[in-house]
Amino acid sequence: METITDTDKTVRVDLDESSVRDLNQFLHHDLAASGVKHIEVLNPNGRHNIAVGVDAPVSVDIRGHAGYFIGGMNKQARITVHGNVGWSVGENIMSGSIRVKGNASECAGASGHGGLVVIEGDASSRCGISMKGCDIVVGGSVGHMSAFMAQLGTLVVCGDADAGLGDSLYEAVIYVRGTIKGLGADAREEPMGEEDYARVAALLDKAGFDHDPKAFKRVASARTLYHWNADHHQEY
């Protein structure tokens, strides 16, 4: 990739000059040998798949608004988007962290197994859908059907949650500071315990938000959908 300039183990990639494929091939194949610790991505301009599949303890700064699947499948890397992102940021994140300084579109942190996704602004619908162990902290509000079928991990919402929150939840837990427009099937509000306060405080601290954990409500699964009940006649 000709446009990469190596200065103090930082490389800068301008996506108006290089392709996303060039960038990702560098991240997948050449990063380890290069000794580079910091990658700066310029002119993302809504392009998709930037910095997917990174598996190295590096930091990536994406300067501008980015498209779909940013930082998908991330392992170890610390990715920051200085702008908004489209659908499915941090999809299937395994470890490391992804921070979006602006807003995120749908399905932020979808299916994430581990690591931390931080959205400083709002996240749109289906935030944390099917999450499997990652943590997601949203500074603003989340859209409808967030944490749909979420299996494990924690979703912390500092603003409000739209309708259908936690529909068909498994063992993931949701904490909401603002108002909840409506809970989905089998999701219920539960009392906060000391463990919950500690869990929220730790995640707020990691994400860099200064809120009182006492202001959060806990939403978890009522576990009535865990077993098939013929008497329900498909109505839950």
């Binding site: 301009n45 809504g46 392009r47 498209g67 779909y68 489209g86």
Partner: peptide
């Protein structure tokens, strides 16, 4: 998608 708008003047 946002990339449809990325070239517009002042969009940032």
């Amino acid at each position: 998608e946002y990339r449809a708008l990325a070239h517009l003047p002042g969009v940032k």
